[in-house]
Design a protein around this nucleic acid. Structure first.
Lengths: 215, 215
DNA sequence: CTCCATTCTGTTGTATACATAATGTATGCG
DNA sequence: CGCATACATTATGTATACAACAGAATGGAG
């Protein structure tokens, strides 16, 4: 199997991350350590360590003498995130075009997989949709060849998934729209039009932001 | 007093952070938990927790069954960091100019303090110099009004301080150069010349990068 | 002398017990 | 009846003890 190192800390980390990202109800609440320890099947120690690691993902916040808080995603945060994503993706776009390093095949492949998903999104398909969406953007970023930017971008995106899952259920037909917008971005990249690519990215992020804000 | 909450974890965190940032010898080594616990005067538990928090700062890396490793700063990482800083600062510059939100007084004040430091840098003055340098750039970023970007930028900068301290000792007369370059950036911001500001930022970061790479 | 197996030592990882601080509840007073 | 205070409960924070693993040292065989 893959990734089944299963040290207690990693098990707790994976469990908590999955739990926070998929269950909208945990937002705005404090996590009970011994409760989680019992659920996961380890002691409080690795649970606490996992919680500390989740701080760096921005998924939990430590309140002294109170414990681990899961901050809800605010509209402002979403807007700020989209702004930052726009800056990083535009930069990557300009760079890969200048250096002729556009990963056209890879990105088109991801896009095709995404387009092949059914329009009606059951929970599992929704997660796959988000995974491919994340991958598409990450591939653009990674192509810029700056590992630090890649890591930074990757961590940022986690926070968006938190709200993306539930938002997707409410928006029918969004799949086709996303794929179309992705295609516009990719076409601009392939054609080497840096300005057009930036515009397409900004447009895509603005639309995404507006949809996420309606929840 | 300020910030003297002094819970065990925070004490350990502050100690370790300070230690890693100022002592170049710890780079590339594994940190011994019980040794640190004895030095700080707490048990291993809060030390471990502090180490987990330092992961999010990028100051330590956890190797399973081996412990907390302090990764040395590479030249490539420095270049990548300067590239990312350039992207974020240029974005902030454009924004604050467009919105007429240039914090001219605040930044000039910081710059003046920096210029007032002696040219010969004893260890304490060097730390103050770096603090003011960091502050100058952070003030520009913060003025853009995007909290997420501010936090992201702030965390990034930590990694640079790691090498900046020792590098400063080797470069005489750098103080004046830095202040001059900062002044050029600030003047461009005040005059509302977005392109000039970006150029000044890029130039400053390029010079900084080249100096840091010579170590 | 070199190489490999084995033991030994020291460190990390986890569990548990205790100390401490915060919250909710009950009780008494205004 | 409302409010403040004291108390009980519960959760977090810390210390310590044990288990499991990695690397070094050691000893023997070729």
């Amino acid at each position: 199997m893959s990734g089944t190192a299963a040290s207690g800390r990693e098990k707790a980390y994976a469990y908590l991350r999955e739990n926070i990202l998929t269950d909208p109800d945990v937002q705005g609440r404090f996590l009970n350590e011994q409760e989680l320890a019992a659920e996961i099947g380890v002691s409080r120690t690795p649970v606490r360590e996992a919680l500390l690691l989740l701080v760096s993902d921005g998924l939990v916040e430590l309140i002294p003498q109170r414990g681990a808080y899961v901050p809800p995603v605010t509209g402002r945060e979403m807007s700020e995130l989209m702004e930052l994503r726009g800056v990083l993706e535009s930069h990557a776009a300009r760079l890969v075009i200048e250096q002729g390093m556009v990963p056209a095949r890879t990105m088109q492949d991801t896009l095709d997989q995404q387009a092949a998903l059914p329009d009606e999104l059951n929970p599992e398909a929704a997660r796959e949709f988000i995974r491919l969406d994340t991958l598409f953007h990450q591939q653009l970023i990674d192509a810029a060849g700056n590992e630090l930017i890649s890591r930074t971008y990757s961590k940022l995106h986690v926070r968006q998934i938190l709200v993306g899952v539930s938002a997707l259920f409410r928006t029918g037909g969004r799949r086709g729209q996303v794929c179309a917008e992705h295609q516009v971005i990719l076409d601009a990249l392939v054609s080497g039009d840096s300005v057009k690519a930036q515009e397409a990215i900004d447009h895509h992020l603005a639309v995404t932001r507006d949809i996420l804000l309606r929840n």
